[in-house]
Design a protein around this nucleic acid. Structure first.
Lengths: 239, 239
DNA sequence: GCCCTGCATTGATCTGGATCAAAACCGCGC
DNA sequence: GCGCGGTTTTGATCCAGATCAATGCAGGGC
């Protein structure tokens, strides 16, 4: 479906403004001054996507770019026969549309309730043209993503199932920690199938590996997440 | 080893200048005007790395960034136990050091004889600061790399050995085609082990898959490369 | 020429994770 | 409470690709 931000996902006026935005300092917006933020604010459409709703689909024209302000988004590619690879999970503060290309290179859908600041791509790229420090920040984000992608290649190509899961849990814990949410307890709003499709495994292997790590006392499964019980061991494995 | 461009790899004066550089129009330099090119030229050290020599090592301080002008470089990460993942092959026109970070995120070594324009990172980033269109070009390169990395995740996580090899050969053929070298014959200067470590396979599986594709009449193995005999079929598989 | 050395190929066997198939669990509506 | 749909876990079996082990083959030194 061709889905503009105004068509799918409730648009509300920006409620409290960028200045009090909870993710401002970790997002691309951190590079902007107070008056630049006001310009940005006038371009922003705060949008809410309920769980399971699609933000955009691979190949679809990229009318908008998004700054995630709450919730978790899964980013994925599909093969014609239905095989799926999740290329990342976007958390609050993450930016979707770094490539600034005409169409999206992957699909994105909300895992839980997601709120995002949507910007029309044309307006956003015009702003980027005149604010080199915003471009610099976007470039930092892109190269950070690239580094993560290279880590993920190592994981997908050369690690065992158990190592994959351990690395994933450690990476999620670090990302949540940067957002100052929880520490030893890692929220996992995504399904087992999502984790499998991110790690290049099947759901059965992911499930078995969770049980193994639980029997090991490496982790403890709690509602909607896990608690890491033996960080030392996990870090040693992931090194 | 701590290896400055002047220490490892023969430095020669820039012989013919950027204006006649064969890869200029496909490299980051294409964003620069003639007089900007002259500034760049004064910063460049043209460096030759013989086959098998290391350009830089993962974790090493990134004193220099590189623009590859000839030859092929393998970019890889290692685990402590020696498992290796090649995260990419750099061809003429490719830029190493996009991240502009203090240290390299992967190691790089020359597969055949490589020539590169080396720039001190500090001088280069100073130039980037004052030339927003150079930054824009770097960002384009970074997001292009990111897109390729996401394709590679799909390949590593979800494709079979045969699909992996076919996608790899097609991707290499496209990359060489952009450089106006050969078309149906794809040069493969890297070893079978390199291909295996790029595709997340073993050398034996790569070799067996090459023989299978040869028996199929999908490819023909020629000295230092392959000839693609059934592009249609290959494109169908990779779609 | 002939040996050495370092790939690459081929063959035989093994195994980690996939696949197929049930259970068990867990809200949620009524 | 109970039934129902979806997800997760567990179990049994299979197989693509890994591993182990020769063998082939080309280029280089002498």
């Amino acid at each position: 479906m061709d889905c503009q931000p105004s068509a799918c996902g409730a648009v509300t006026p920006v409620e409290n403004g960028c200045l009090v935005c909870k993710v401002r300092l970790v997002s691309v917006c951190a590079s902007l001054s107070v008056d630049e933020l006001q310009m940005l604010e006038s371009l922003a459409h705060e949008t809410v996507f309920p769980a399971k709703e699609t933000l955009f689909t691979q190949g679809q024209p990229a009318h908008s770019v998004y700054n995630i302000t709450a919730g978790v988004v899964r980013l994925y590619k599909l093969l014609p026969d239905g095989r799926r690879q999740i290329v990342g999970f976007a958390l609050p503060g993450d930016f979707l549309g770094l490539a600034m290309r005409d169409s999206f290179g992957f699909s994105a859908d909300a895992i839980d309730t997601v709120t995002a600041c949507a910007f029309s791509r044309s307006a956003y790229s015009a702003l980027v043209e005149e604010k080199p420090h915003l471009l610099r920040r976007l470039h930092q984000f892109a190269t950070h993503e690239l580094t993560l992608a290279q880590e993920q290649m190592m994981l997908l190509g050369r690690r065992t199932a158990e190592e994959k899961l351990i690395c994933f849990l450690l990476a999620m814990q670090e990302r949540w920690a940067k957002l100052r949410k929880s520490s030893v307890t890692v929220p996992l709003p995504m399904s087992r199938q999502d984790i499998a499709d991110f790690l290049g495994l099947t759901i059965e292997t992911v499930s078995r590996t969770f049980t193994k790590l639980t029997k090991d006392k490496t982790i403890l499964i709690v509602p909607d997440g896990v608690r890491l019980m033996n960080l030392d061991h996990m870090v040693r494995v992931s090194a």
